[in-house]
Write a protein that binds this DNA or RNA. Structure first.
Length: 185
DNA sequence: AGGATGATGGACT
DNA sequence: GTCCATCATCCTA
């Protein structure tokens, strides 16, 4: 199953299968690639924690676009965070990119982050490392000539499901998925 | 290793 | 006016 097909499904199914895929950004002539290791599912009108719970607005419109559309929002007035829309067009389902590992363009990521560690282990940090901002809202991540793209990778050996982070409503749903290190011998 | 806190802006009641 | 899908820094231990 390819990414386009995967993203036509519900977020709690698609999210864990996005682990191990790669986000690639080509911005200002610089490339950064991040292996996705942490995601969260947000299920639109069925999910009180979702930005799309109350329907489509100016801010969340991208989540209602076709699968593979990037939804970028400002968090706490300071950071940028990004999601990919999934499910049928118009439903407002999405998957938040919550963390990853920089596998290409480390120097660029270090420069953007202003530090040499913790480059993408958080949604705001991941967006900053990739150079993603409000102007990238609506990017079609599955277009081969887009500035920011989502590409297939190799699936992790172990996936853990836990409650989502930083929310107060529907906090019991185990819709956070992380790539875990296999238990060593 | 873990808890508290300030920064800062937009969406919503 | 209040609530955030956060982060870095500054404490205490």
């Amino acid at each position: 199953m390819d990414l386009a097909e995967l993203l036509t499904g519900p977020p709690e199914k698609a999210a864990p299968r996005l682990l191990g895929s790669t986000l690639v950004s080509d911005i200002q002539g610089k490339r950064v690639s991040v292996r996705v290791t942490e995601v969260e599912a947000y299920k639109g009108s069925d999910d009180p924690a979702s930005h799309a719970f109350r329907g489509r607005t100016m801010r969340n419109g991208s989540m209602f676009e076709r699968p593979g559309t990037l939804y970028v929002y400002r968090s706490y007035g300071i950071h940028w965070c990004c999601n990919v829309a999934c499910g049928p067009e118009g439903v407002g389902w999405g998957i938040l990119f919550r963390g990853g590992l920089v596998i290409d363009g480390v120097g660029v990521a270090v420069s953007r982050r202003g530090r040499a560690d913790s480059l993408a282990d958080g949604p705001g940090k991941l967006a900053q490392a990739l150079g993603i901002g409000g102007s990238h809202d609506g990017t079609r991540l599955l277009d081969h000539d887009a500035q920011i793209r989502l590409e297939a990778g190799h699936a992790p050996e172990v996936v853990l499901a836990t409650p989502r982070i930083g929310i107060s409503r529907a906090a019991e749903k185990p819709w956070r998925f992380i790539e875990a290190a296999p238990v060593s011998a």
